[in-house]
Structures are given as structure tokens and as C-alpha cells.
Design a protein around this nucleic acid. Structure first.
Length: 146
DNA sequence: TAGGCCATCTGGTCCT
DNA sequence: AGGACCAGATGGCCTA
């Protein structure tokens, strides 16, 4: 990379250039470089903050297994992956067993009786055990998918 | 105190 | 040229 100093010395035209002295030109360049660096740092900070906001939003829609500690970024991604796959599976099942009666009957066969009653009677969110049956990711013992 | 997680800085690369 | 994205380095904080 050519420096300001060397280009000025190479040209030999000092009086017509905006930087009258080599020292001033060098310091201005360094000042500009520092400014650009600071601006880039700020942009990078904003970018990472945006990324973290997205992770927070993802954490809110992904099951947490009643954990008081929030999921790490890696765990959040793994959980989201499993969650999406589970929901996809449920949708596929629902399509296959087209009527609601058949679909509920299917789940009575697959879930504990108490989960079934919760689902049918109260329409409340299933407990975490039922979730655990639905999809494979569990924070304590997940494996890297490959 | 070691290990995990995270934020930030930084230089490189790619894209517009 | 400047911005976005990425990966490596570094240091701080927290927990077992």
C-alpha cells in the first residue's frame, strides 16, 4: 500500500497538493483512518446488537424447558431447529389424518392420558414432558447434528 | 481457578 | 469507496 508520504515524495510536487507538509498529511491520514475505524466499530456493534435482538426474539418463541437460565446462542439455534422439525412433523400428521377426530385419536395413542385430557378438555399448553416427547432437543444432552 | 459464554475490536473479503 | 459480513483475538463476567 502506498503511503501519503511516499506518493508526495515520488511526485515532487509539494506546493500544489492539499497537504502542505508531509507530517500534516500523515497525521490527517491517520486521523481519517482512525475515524473510519471507529465508524466501522460502531457499525459492527450495531450489527451484533441487531443479531442479539433476533436471538432474543427467537428465544421467546422457542421452548425453554422451564429453565431459569436463558439458552445460549448455540442452544437457541439447536432448539429452534428441533422445534421447527417437530412442528413440521405435526403438520404432516395433521394432513395425513385429515379429520380432527382422527388426529386427536392419534395423539391419545401417542401421549400420556393426562396430556391427552389437557389437550382435549382445556386447550392449555402441554407440559414439558409432552414437549419432550414431541421433539428431540434437550439442553442438557443435545448432540451436534451433522 | 478453569471453562463457557459473551461483547468488542480488528483486518480481510465480498458486494453494491 | 464504503458498507456488510465474517472470523480470529482478547478481555470480562459468571459458575461449578
Amino acid at each position: 500500500m502506498k503511503t501519503c508520504k511516499s506518493s508526495h515524495l515520488d511526485s515532487g510536487l509539494e506546493s500544489d497538493l492539499p497537504c502542505r507538509s508531509v507530517v500534516k498529511c500523515g497525521s490527517e491520514r491517520m486521523e481519517n483512518a482512525a475515524k473510519r475505524r471507529l465508524a466501522a466499530n460502531a457499525r459492527e456493534r450495531r450489527r451484533m446488537q441487531g443479531l442479539n435482538t433476533a436471538f432474543d426474539r427467537l428465544r421467546k418463541v422457542v421452548p425453554q424447558w422451564g429453565q431459569d437460565k436463558k439458552l445460549s446462542k448455540y442452544e437457541t439455534l439447536q432448539m429452534a431447529l428441533s422445534y421447527i422439525m417437530a412442528l413440521t412433523r405435526i403438520l404432516a400428521e395433521a394432513e395425513r389424518y385429515s379429520t380432527e377426530r382422527e388426529w386427536i385419536h392419534l395423539h391419545r395413542e401417542h401421549f400420556h392420558a393426562e396430556s391427552y385430557h389437557q389437550y382435549v378438555g382445556q386447550k392449555v399448553a402441554p407440559d414439558t414432558d409432552s414437549y419432550a416427547q414431541l421433539f428431540s432437543y434437550h439442553p442438557e444432552h443435545f448432540q451436534i447434528a451433522n
